[in-house]
Amino acid sequence: MSLIVKDLCKSYGDKVVVDHLSFAMEEPGVYALLGTNGAGKTTSIRMMLGMLSRDSGEVLWDGRPLDTNTCNVGYLAEERGLYPKYELMDQLIYFAALRGVSRAEARKRIKYWAERLEVEEYLYPQMPKVQPEEALLGKKKSLGLRGRGKVQKPKKADQLSKGNQQKIQLMTALLSEPQLLILDEPLSGLDPVNTDLFNSIIREEIDKGKYLIMSSHQMATVEEFCTDITILNRSKTVLQGHLNDIKKSYGRVNLSLKTEQDISTYLETEGVHLVTRKENEYRLKVTGEEQANRLLSLLIENHVTVITFDLREPSLHEIFVEKVGQANEAE
């Protein structure tokens, strides 16, 4: 199976919002669609899914136009939404039914994902918690209506925190066990614990051999999961390709250095560009591995104690900022 996006274009009047976007996923994995705010990522996703009409271009899944009939798609939209006043279980069963999942099967899957995402208490009626001392003493407080413990009703969407709503929305995307999963800003607004939970689920889906398209501003996450990327800026593609190849093309130019004394004079001698400094911790930009090695030799010759020497490729964040900056300057 493969996903091919060919020459997608969209304009509103004179304003071009997506300008000839093309990319392909020949095998399962994660493809990152990156870009500044308003670059055209969400519009591209909407066009791919057929929600928005496109001016030109096509999207093929396994050689056929991508459609909910040709491909089982799961989608976590950037604009999260649930019916605020309806019970969550009803909503989940409804979304599953819309994807052709039977009620019984939906209930099974909801149970699995509710456990996995730790949201069971919001979906199923809960028995009141008995205080340990009451249990030990055999006290019973059910004297009259006020003292009686009530079964806690399942929650409605507007009774959940934003993070928990996001978990329910991720469930809606996963309930149909999709072949293609599109996650638009999946981690925005999540606390570190839930970010880890989401990351583990994304990893699971990758392991299952799913095709994932991810749009995110969290470069560390993208770097962790994605194999290929497209960076959009103001509707245009400014960088595209295999992430490792892109990084390799930049070379190892980022040097993190920690020493026991001030090395400013040696940096000047070697002509190394200082990015940031915090006491004796330096972040440097070198021209390549040769300059980095020369600097290291110089420090050793002068009996400078080196605690950390880390030479690496630029991060995706740095590449992104550089590419978008260049594109903006060119305009």
């Binding site: 909407r46 899914l49 929600m51 909910t68 798609v73 989608y75 939209a77 604009e79 999260r80 939404g81 649930l82 019916y83 605020p84 979304f95 819309l98 994807r99 929305q169 809606t172």
Partner: peptide, 16 residues
């Protein structure tokens, strides 16, 4: 309007 303002439309339009 409730469906639209609850930002549910995108989620629904993926299926129907």
């Amino acid at each position: 309007i409730e469906e639209k303002s609850s930002k549910l439309v995108e989620l629904l339009m993926i299926s129907v």
